[in-house]
Computed example of a mutant assay.
Amino acid sequence: MNQLTFNELQSYLTLKYKEGVTSSALFMKLVEEIGEVAEVLNQIEGRKENLGDNSLEKELVDVIHYAMAIASINHIDLTKAIIKKDKQAAVKYNQSPDLEEFLVENKEH
């Protein structure tokens, strides 16, 4: 299977949603998908009857899809944003390595 980067997925989603969709419409889909993740987790953990028609993998992919679509149509580079946000959190919570350091270390190995 091919590797996929955030940038590639965001470029695809920008193309896919280039016309006629709003951030709020995508957000409503995102909320719906988060609810479906909750349903699957409830089934997995025995709080609800397992109907067997949903999978956690599928629902998590849907959540990522809609979250990234919102970022894409709003011209947010999630790769840069995630690294920046993680660096801020690493400083705030005194954590090491931060994501950027981790990526550099992994490329060296």
Results as ranks from 00 to 15, higher is better:
Tyr17Gly: 01
Ser55His: 13
Asn54Arg: 14
Ser24Val: 14
Arg47Phe: 05
Lys80Ser: 12
Glu32Gln: 02
His75Lys: 13
Tyr93Trp: 13
Ile82Asp: 03
Met28Glu: 15
Ser24Ile: 13
Ala71Gly: 09
Lys58Leu: 09
Thr14Phe: 10
Lys80Asp: 13
Asp98Trp: 06
His65Ile: 01
Phe102Ala: 13
Lys48Ile: 02
Ser23Glu: 10
Ile34Asn: 08
Glu33Ile: 01
Glu49Leu: 08
Asp86Gln: 14
Glu8Cys: 05
Ile44Trp: 12
Ala71Ile: 04
Ser24Cys: 08
Asn42Ile: 02
Asn106Thr: 13
Glu108Cys: 05
Ile73Lys: 00
Gln10Cys: 03
Ser24Met: 08
Ser23Pro: 02
Glu8His: 04
Asn50Val: 09
Glu100Pro: 01
Glu39Phe: 09
Leu51Gly: 06
Ile83Asp: 05
Ile70Gln: 11
Gln95Ser: 09
Thr79Cys: 07
Ala71His: 08
Asp62Ala: 00
Ile83Gly: 00
Ile83Phe: 02
Phe27Trp: 05
Lys16Leu: 00
Lys58Glu: 11
Lys58Ala: 15
Ile82Asn: 01
Lys18Gln: 15
Tyr93Ala: 01
Glu8Ile: 04
Glu32Tyr: 01
Phe6Gln: 09
Ser24Trp: 09
Glu100Gly: 05
Ala71Asp: 08
Ala69Tyr: 02
Leu51Ala: 01
Lys80Arg: 12
Glu101His: 09
Ile83Lys: 04
Ser11Gln: 10
Glu49Val: 15
Glu49Thr: 11
Asn94Gln: 15
Arg47Asn: 07
Gln95His: 13
Glu49Met: 14
Thr5Asp: 13
Val61Pro: 05
Val61Trp: 12
Leu41Arg: 10
Ala90Ile: 00
Tyr93Val: 02
Glu19Ala: 13
Leu30Asp: 02
Val37Phe: 04
Met68Glu: 12
Ala67Gly: 14
Gln3Glu: 12
Ala89Gln: 15
Glu100Lys: 06
Glu49Asn: 14
Glu101Asn: 09
Val31Met: 06
Lys87Glu: 05
Met1Thr: 04
Glu101Tyr: 08
Ile70Pro: 10
Tyr93Gly: 06
Ala81Arg: 11
Glu59Met: 02
Ile44Val: 12
Leu26Gly: 03
Lys87Asn: 05
Ala89Asn: 15
Phe6Asn: 03
Leu9Met: 10
Thr14Pro: 03
Leu4Ser: 10
His75Ala: 13
Pro97Phe: 10
Gln88Pro: 04
Ala38Trp: 05
Asn54Asp: 07
Ala90Gln: 07
Leu15Thr: 15
Ser72Tyr: 08
Tyr93Glu: 07
Val31Gln: 03
Ser11Ala: 14
Tyr93Ile: 06
Val31Asp: 00
Leu56Val: 01
Asn54Ser: 14
